[in-house]
C-alpha cells in the first residue's frame, strides 16, 4: 500500500542511519581492536593510524597483537576477583529483586484501592532520586553498625534501590494478564496465594525475564553505590576500573584499564545479542501504557 518513496529521501535516510550506526559501533570496535596493542599505538603521538597497523606493537612485542593489557589487568591487577564479585552481586540482586518485585507488583496491579496508586507515585519519586543522595544517608549508619564494605550490604541496598523500578515494570506486566484468570481460579476455591502460585506464576515469565534483564543492567552498570560502599578487596568491576585510572596513568599501564573495559563490556554485548527482543519490549512496556 505504501507509495514508493522518492530516491532522495531513501538516500538521505540511509546516509543518516549509516552515520548513526558508525557513531554507535565504532567506539567499541576501535577499543576492542586497540586493546590488543601497546600503549604507544593506542595512544599514538605520531599518527592515529598506528593503532590500526600496530607499528609500536610490532617493535615492542614482535607480533601484531599482544595480550599484555589483558594479562596485566586479569593477573597482575587481579581483575578476576572483581569479575567474581560482580557475578555474585548481580545474580543475587536480580534474584532477590524479582522475588520481592513479583509479589509487590502483583498486589499493586490487583488492588483497586487508592493507596496502590499512591505507592506507585512514591515509587516514582524514589526512582527519580539520584542514588548517590541515598549513599550519603547510608555511610554514617553503616560505619557505626560495622556494615560498611561488605558485598552483602551492597546487595541488599541495591535490591532496595531497584525496587521502585521493578515494581513499576512488573505492575504494568501484571496489568496485561487478564484479571479473570486469577479471579476465576478464586471462584473455583483457590485462595489468593494459590491463584498466584498456580495461575499467575506459569504465565508471568516473559515479563519477569524482561524485568530481570533491566535489574541486571542496573546492578552491573552501577558506580555510585559500588564505588562508595565497597572495600577495595570487595570491589566489583566498575569501581575497580575507576580505580585503575588513578593508579595506572602514573605507572603507564593505561592498557590494563583498556583491557578491563573491553572485558567488562563483553558480557553486555552477549546480553543484547540474546535478549534484544526482550530489551526492546521492556523499554516500551512502560511507555505504551503511559
Amino acid at each position: 500500500m505504501q507509495r514508493k518513496s522518492p530516491l532522495w529521501l531513501t538516500v538521505v535516510s540511509m546516509g543518516f542511519l549509516g552515520l548513526w550506526l558508525m557513531l554507535a559501533s565504532i567506539p567499541f570496535l576501535w577499543t576492542l581492536w586497540g586493546s590488543f596493542k601497546v600503549e604507544g599505538d593506542f595512544f599514538s603521538k605520531q599518527d592515529w593510524q598506528n593503532a590500526i597497523y600496530g607499528i609500536r606493537t610490532m617493535v615492542e612485542t614482535g607480533g601484531l597483537f599482544t595480550g599484555g593489557g589483558y594479562e596485566g589487568a586479569w593477573v597482575k591487577e587481579e581483575f578476576w576477583k572483581a569479575t567474581l564479585n560482580t557475578g555474585i552481586m548481580t545474580l543475587s540482586v536480580v534474584a532477590i529483586s524479582l522475588t520481592l518485585g513479583t509479589l509487590g507488583g502483583y498486589a499493586l496491579s490487583r488492588s483497586g484501592f487508592r493507596y496502590a496508586f499512591w505507592i506507585l507515585i512514591i515509587a516514582l519519586v524514589f526512582r527519580a532520586m539520584p542514588h548517590i543522595t541515598l549513599v550519603s544517608g547510608y555511610l554514617l549508619p553503616f560505619f557505626e553498625l560495622n556494615l560498611w564494605g561488605h558485598l552483602t550490604t551492597t546487595i541488599i541496598v541495591m535490591v532496595a534501590i531497584n525496587q521502585p523500578f521493578t515494581l513499576w515494570m512488573l505492575h504494568s506486566f501484571f496489568l496485561n494478564i487478564p484479571k479473570d484468570l486469577d479471579e476465576s481460579a478464586m471462584v473455583d476455591g483457590c485462595t489468593r496465594f494459590q491463584a498466584f502460585r498456580y495461575v499467575i506464576i506459569p504465565v508471568m515469565w516473559p515479563g519477569v525475564i524482561t524485568t530481570g534483564l533491566f535489574s541486571f543492567l542496573l546492578a552491573y552498570n552501577d558506580f555510585a553505590l559500588t564505588g562508595l560502599l565497597l572495600t577495595e578487596e570487595n570491589q566489583t568491576m566498575v569501581p575497580k576500573i575507576a580505580g585503575f585510572l588513578g593508579t595506572t596513568q602514573e605507572q603507564g599501564n593505561v592498557m590494563y584499564a583498556v583491557a578491563a573495559v573491553v572485558s567488562a563490556t563483553a558480557p553486555l554485548f552477549v546480553l543484547v545479542l540474546f535478549f534484544q527482543r526482550q530489551i526492546v519490549s521492556g523499554l516500551t512496556a512502560g511507555a505504551v501504557k503511559g
Binding site: L17, W20, L21, L23, A24, S25, P27, F28, W30, T31, L217, Y220, N221, F223, V238, I241, A242, L245, A257, V261, A264, T265, L268, F269, L271, V272, L273, Q276, I279, V280
Partner: peptide, 19 residues
C-alpha cells in the same frame, strides 16, 4: 541495525564515557 543502535545505551556509563 537495532542491535548496534542499542549498544551505546546498554554499556556501563562509566565505561562508555571512558571509551
Amino acid at each position: 541495525t537495532i542491535f548496534f543502535s542499542l549498544l551505546p545505551m546498554i554499556v556501563t556509563p562509566l565505561i562508555g564515557s571512558l571509551i
